[in-house]
Amino acid sequence: MRDTWIVILGLTAGTFAIRLGGILLGQQIPTTGPWARGLRALPGCLIVSLVAMSLVSGGGQEWTAAAIAAAVAIVTRNLPATMAAGIAAIWALRHFA
């Protein structure tokens, strides 16, 4: 019980400090030059890393479903449609493949 509250308080303080720290860090970075170019590229690279991280632990079914979701995303540029296609694809692959 005590451990649980320690974890909750520690995660609260640490996570908020990280979120705030990023804002302070961002304000220290120049607005032109290589650092600014890197910071502009950062969101896309982080999203790609998130997708890569979740696919590395998966197998052929996850990769196939991701490819189907990517195809739907490229054609429709639509978030709910891509989510629906990805979930339907992984469900079908796990049940019927």
Partner: peptide
Amino acid sequence: GMDFAFTAAFIAIAR
């Protein structure tokens, strides 16, 4: 198949 919801969402957002 709901564990795949976020992977699919981030694929759409990357696009």
